[in-house]
């Protein structure tokens, strides 16, 4: 009797899973058994649910539609290679024609992605990269060092007289944010009016970023600018400055332009945003993947640009640069 019960429970669970699977697949509007020569593309995000990757996903889906390819999207719950690797392995097992992937670690994702390429799948690295990306048909990312310089320019235009500036980054070892920090640091070094206080790491936790910024303001109450290299760091930094009651004195310039940051921009806690062009990265990624699949030549490396968003232009010409929460 007991065993019947368990089997019943299990069957319900599994039936549910099966049901979900059919719904889920339908939701993505991409039945894999579709048109015979339709190319299938898998997009593996760095972390699921992040607006940057969602915007990129929108660009990918639009472009894929245009070029006649299907797209499936997967991503780990956290920006964590130990969670992303099983997903990559599973995606490889599903044998898509091409994979667009944002690797979560330069070392850890090297072998799994190399294996994907060895299995005949065209791999395009988007946003982040790995130690030896020679297996990839293309790498597409923002010119992150240039982004760091742009961030410094944004701070400079807010605080022309100079002062101390702090950087709040995510984790060391992420190629994109490291490059942003390097670009920023270089730009500060080129201007004697500014003093670089170094970089702190938020581990992608807004709460940690808030703690870092409040603590830094305790130590150096005269900080004039904070450069937060990504979304969560910026949200946390803004919270920290609010907690310390230093709104107005400390200018926050952040990378990326999610709805929350735009809100912060509206509220005046963040003064400028350096927006990447994730949609463009996605479009380019699909184009490069399709080129590779169709035997055309590919560009090994593409760097995309930035848009600086401030309160003044956010509803004007910079409006389209804001990231999306859904396509």
């Amino acid at each position: 009797m007991k065993s019947t019960k368990l089997v019943a429970v299990a069957s319900v669970a599994v039936l549910g899973a099966g049901l979900l699977s059919s719904c889920g697949a339908a939701e993505n509007g991409s039945s894999s058994s579709g048109g015979g020569d339709k190319k299938s593309i898998a997009f593996i995000q760095g972390v699921a649910g992040d607006q940057f990757y969602i915007t990129m996903q929108c660009g990918i889906q639009d472009e894929a539609k245009k070029l006649g390819a299907t797209v499936k999207v997967q991503g780990p719950e956290k920006f964590d290679p130990t969670l992303q690797k099983p997903i990559v392995d599973s995606v490889v097992a599903s044998k898509p024609d091409a994979i667009l992937v944002a690797p979560t670690d330069v070392s850890a994702m090297q072998a799994p992605l190399k294996a994907a390429a060895d299995a005949g799948i065209k791999v395009v690295l988007v946003d982040t990269t790995v130690n030896d990306p020679s297996f990839a048909v293309s790498q597409i990312a923002s010119d992150n060092e240039g982004g760091g310089k742009a961030a410094f320019d944004a701070i400079k235009s807010q605080v022309p007289n100079g002062g101390k500036v702090l950087v709040v980054s995510v984790d060391p070892g992420i190629s994109t944010t490291d490059a942003r920090v390097a670009g920023f640091k270089q730009a500060v070094a080129g201007d004697s009016k500014f003093k670089y206080l170094g970089v702190q790491y938020s581990h992608n936790e807004p709460a940690t970023a808030a703690k870092i910024v409040t603590a830094a303001l305790q130590k150096d109450p005269d900080i004039v600018g904070v450069f937060a290299t990504n979304l969560f760091s910026a949200e946390g930094s803004a919270t920290g400055i609010r907690q310390a009651g230093k709104q107005g004195q400390v200018k926050v310039v952040s990378f990326d332009a999610g709805p929350d940051q735009v809100k912060a921009l509206e509220d005046g806690t963040i003064q400028a945003l350096v927006a990447q062009q994730p949609g463009v990265i996605g479009q380019d990624g699909v184009q490069q993947a399709m080129n590779a699949l169709n035997g055309k030549s590919t560009e090994k490396q593409i760097q995309t640009g930035f848009t600086i968003i401030t309160k003044d232009n956010m509803n004007g010409d910079a409006k389209d640069a804001i990231y999306k929460s859904s396509c």
Binding site: A17, G24, I87
Partner: peptide, 16 residues
Amino acid sequence: NGFVIVGIQPFWQQVA
């Protein structure tokens, strides 16, 4: 693994 291969949103895995 199965959810990824079938192409279900990753969040459903946690639910399941």
